[in-house]
Computed example of a mutant assay.
Amino acid sequence: MKTAILFGSTGLVGRHVLNQLIQNDNYSKIKIFVRSSIQINNSKIKVIQTDFNNLEKYKDEIEGDECFFCIGTTKKNSPDKNEYQRIELDIPKQVAQIAKSNNINSYFFVSSGYANSKSSADYLKYKGLVEEKILSLGFSKIGIMRPSFILGNRKEFRLGEKIGIIIFKLLNPLLVGPLKKMRSIHSETIAKAMIKLANNNIDQKIFESDQISDLVK
């Protein structure tokens, strides 16, 4: 029986990861790290209210078999440039470093399609830099998810994303060959793929959007 560590359990992908972990008999304990206290009635779950400005304080809690990192933000929600960098770059790199120092074997990260450390776009650059950090740490098992447009029920209404959903549903069948990695993907599919990777021997480390979907077929 395994212990899973989850960052981002209330987010679009993270809440599906949590549900998958609860349902999976391979896990006896799930540690979730959250900013605000939440009530979850499940004997597997340990809720750790976390000051993300002082992650070293929780180093002893970041221990287990597998770490799932699903935290992300937008520039609209984090307009301050330094705060945006902290959430998208500094926190995931620090969590990965602590996880490795605590001998966690497996690390799973929700990145982005076209992540690239040399990109001129901050979002893609930060995701790429985090990917490089995770790969350099040498975890026994790594799963870097690079989804394209993510479908799912978000807590807040975003008109642009509602329009995007309609557009991608029309475009998906037309995206073939090298363009398949641009296909939209449901948040639950990403979560299922991460759990499958965690519990099977698959050598691949980075998965584009279409490859994530293929994992759960």
Rank of each mutant, 00 (worst) to 15 (best):
V47K: 07
K180N: 03
G14L: 04
S106G: 03
N201V: 00
N54S: 14
Q20S: 14
F109N: 01
A4R: 06
K133V: 12
L159D: 01
N153A: 05
K81P: 15
K44T: 09
V17G: 05
L12Q: 00
F139E: 07
S106H: 01
N201D: 03
N200S: 13
N102K: 09
I45A: 13
K180Q: 08
S36R: 14
L129N: 08
L137N: 03
I163S: 04
L18V: 02
S120E: 12
F33Q: 07
I91K: 04
K196C: 01
Y84D: 04
H16T: 06
Y27E: 11
L159E: 02
K31H: 11
N200T: 13
A115I: 09
S36G: 07
I104P: 09
A193C: 02
K162F: 10
K169V: 05
K162Q: 13
I30N: 09
C67H: 12
G160C: 10
N77S: 09
N102F: 11
N116T: 03
N42S: 10
F207G: 03
S117Y: 11
F7T: 10
Q97W: 00
F108Y: 13
I48N: 03
S119Q: 10
T73C: 01
A115N: 10
K181I: 12
Y123G: 13
I166L: 14
K31A: 07
I87R: 03
